[in-house]
Amino acid sequence: MSTDKESRLSPQERLGLVMDVLQHGLSVHRAALAYRTSPATVRKWVGRYLAQGEEGLKDKPVERRGRRGPITPSSAMLVLRLRERELSVRDIAKTVEAAESVVAAILERAGLGDAMSTATPIAEADTRMPGELVFIVTARLTAIEERDRFGRGRVLDGEVLFAAMDDCTRVLFAAVHEDESAQTARDFMRHACAFFAALGVAVQRIVTGRRSGFRSHTFLRACREAQVGHHFGHFGSSSANSKSRQAEDLVGLVQSEWGATSHSSASHRRHALTDWQYHYNWKRLHPGLDRTPMAALGALLGGEPPPDPTKIWTP
């Protein structure tokens, strides 16, 4: 029998670490640096909190034999990873071999309890005016190699495509960022709202996936400040409805048309996205609308298609 008293973190510090990871969107590695510990230790305390609540963060004997509880800390961490893949509570429970009530409790501690049950009905609602519902989806981009003037190369990996689509008109706003952190998700949401505002559209509600950046307090606080309702969708799962699949298909379209082009550098890839976005919104006929998205927006707003916002607004 052994205890956790040799740990450098007090129970209060462990709770602060866990909250920074689960609620503030801090990555495991950055949390390890901030609290001067290892990533494995961060995962251990987050897993114990998810499995047992605050009781799991206390100094107490750890039994070496027998069952430690309804679910192990490592399985609790697996629950979050499976949820990020948009699996249902029932599917997760089958995978980790735990009761659905145990999985639901873990998701509740991670701040994913209440929002999940209301996501699908809101995403299914019909939208008749621009801005009523905007989907924000992300996709990780392939690595790209850049070379300087001396011929030295470096590989940029991990860049993320963010795309915001108005459900009513299919108008698109997209940008490439270096990560999916809480601050990046917040900034993209603000830029997307500013883009639509330049078109005369006020964003009322947004639907996102369940990545940690969208679950963070930083992102939720920004939504409240912007007076934008925020809901979670079922992207990439069997329970995804038609609207969620349309948003996913849009990201696939962006990647297949814009991403299929060979780009010499990351900056070139980003400039090419701006050009493709203009083509999609103003020039390309949308098959579901029989017109361009901007023409559809202009018709609903009672006038001609609005001008290109990039000429009057830049993020």
Results as ranks from 00 to 15, higher is better:
residue 184 T to S: 15
residue 210 R to E: 11
residue 203 V to P: 01
residue 214 F to V: 06
residue 183 Q to M: 09
residue 211 R to E: 11
residue 233 G to V: 06
residue 195 F to I: 01
residue 194 A to H: 09
residue 229 G to C: 03
residue 215 R to T: 04
residue 193 C to E: 10
residue 204 Q to T: 00
residue 223 C to E: 09
residue 222 A to G: 04
residue 181 S to L: 05
residue 181 S to H: 04
residue 224 R to W: 06
residue 200 G to L: 02
residue 215 R to Y: 00
residue 224 R to G: 13
residue 214 F to H: 11
residue 178 E to S: 14
residue 199 L to H: 11
residue 192 A to H: 07
residue 218 T to W: 09
residue 191 H to W: 06
residue 177 H to G: 12
residue 208 T to Q: 10
residue 210 R to M: 14
residue 188 F to N: 02
residue 181 S to M: 00
residue 194 A to Y: 04
residue 199 L to A: 13
residue 185 A to Q: 05
residue 234 H to T: 10
residue 210 R to P: 00
residue 191 H to T: 11
residue 234 H to Q: 15
residue 182 A to L: 06
residue 193 C to M: 13
residue 193 C to K: 01
residue 196 F to R: 01
residue 233 G to E: 08
residue 212 S to E: 11
residue 188 F to V: 03
residue 233 G to H: 08
residue 179 D to S: 14
residue 237 S to H: 04
residue 227 Q to Y: 07
residue 190 R to N: 07
residue 225 E to D: 13
residue 213 G to A: 08
residue 201 V to P: 03
residue 219 F to D: 09
residue 207 V to F: 07
residue 204 Q to I: 05
residue 235 F to I: 12
residue 188 F to E: 04
residue 225 E to K: 10
residue 236 G to D: 10
residue 228 V to H: 09
residue 212 S to R: 11
residue 227 Q to F: 10
residue 216 S to E: 03
residue 200 G to K: 07
residue 184 T to Q: 12
residue 197 A to D: 10
residue 200 G to P: 02
residue 180 E to Q: 14
residue 216 S to N: 08
residue 191 H to L: 08
residue 203 V to T: 08
residue 214 F to C: 06
residue 220 L to I: 08
residue 221 R to Q: 14
